[in-house]
Simulated assay, not measured.
Amino acid sequence: MAEIEGFERRRDSVQAALAASGLSTLQEANELLKAHNIDTAELVRKIQPICFENACWAYVLGGAIAVARGVTDAAEIAETIGEGLQAFCVPGSVADHRKIGIGHGSLAARLLSEKTRCFAFVAGHESFAAAEGAIGIANSANRVRNTRLQVILNGLGKDAGYIISRINGFTYVHTEWDHAKRELNILGEKRFTQGPRAEILCFGADEVEEGVAIMIHNQVDVSITGNATNMSRFQHPVTGTYKRWCIQNGRDFFAVASGGGTGRTVNPDENGAGPASYGLTDTVGRMYADAQFAGSSSVPAHVDMMGFVGMGNNPMVGATVSLAVAICQAAR
């Protein structure tokens, strides 16, 4: 087994999770999954090739717990994987306080639930992590769902949306917001491939109002915001405003605020406060989010700094769904 980053800080919680499931070591957990023809490390790296080793082993633990318990429903498997991810959170860290491992399991479970029809990555299009996560979900979730989950990207900039679509083989949806009539007009679609990736719809907005209208148009049930360059002028305002619209219109909407924590917030209130220092993006996320992650949506090192594992939060969504589906199919 390769050396796991920061394992000494996670050893006790990992061993407790293993013992609770009748397992002795992570190697034993990995062999259990391999016996079901599941190569967890390969699956995780397909989503984000630059992830840390500790991310691969965190998913080994979560997946093995599900197999050891005999869980067969995909959504329940996702929840169980979250327990393994949580065990890899460093005790006392930002990730531990926010129960981010449990949060990732809960988010993936919602994406595998038939009640969820549309999932949105609300991200600055300079973040390719949203695309990585979207691909992971599109390639796996619909294998076990009775109704197809619609995955969309909603970001700032039509040119950026077009480029992201072209590079990843998505379908670009060209929209225009009519300020006078307060209507969203669909001007056309450009499908770049014919496979599962083309089912992912990518929208580029000129500003917040259009971004909210895109959310309403797609009747988004669950979303995750990225903390990229435009988070304070697009991602958080769009999702927070859409959350308000859903409350006013009696619609259930589960919002996840990705990113935040120390070191990457805008205008931290007190640089000397360490983990107690939060800036604008972290604060705004707390105002509307049902669950809040920590660390970068894309950069593994920053998520690890928050006390979690080395994998971007957006790709992690795809990894959790993919592993849950693989275990579900192996059980069948």
Rank of each mutant, 00 (worst) to 15 (best):
R191S: 14
V299H: 10
F128L: 13
C328T: 08
A255G: 02
L85F: 03
R145M: 04
I135K: 05
R286G: 14
V208C: 04
R182H: 12
N30A: 13
N271R: 06
N314Q: 15
R11E: 15
G82A: 11
Q27M: 13
S140R: 05
F253D: 10
T147D: 14
G204F: 01
A68C: 08
V60M: 06
F121C: 12
G169N: 04
S223W: 05
A75R: 03
A66R: 02
A129V: 02
A64P: 00
G295M: 09
I137Y: 05
R10A: 13
G103T: 01
M287C: 15
G157K: 03
A78T: 06
T320E: 09
F253V: 13
V238Q: 08
I224T: 12
M287F: 03
H97Q: 15
G136W: 00
S223Y: 03
E207W: 04
F192A: 08
A87P: 00
V44R: 12
A75M: 03
E176Y: 02
V144P: 02
L18S: 11
V303M: 07
M316A: 15
I163G: 01
I38K: 00
Q15P: 00
N230F: 08
A20F: 02
G84H: 04
L107H: 00
V144I: 09
I50L: 11
G279C: 06
I47V: 15
D290E: 10
N185L: 13
Q48F: 03
G259T: 03
H217P: 02
H104I: 09
G260L: 05
A291H: 06
T229K: 11
L85T: 07
N146H: 12
S113D: 14
A68I: 07
F121P: 01
G274E: 05
M316V: 04
Y172N: 06
P268Q: 05
S113G: 12
K158I: 09
E83Y: 00
A16H: 03
A58V: 10
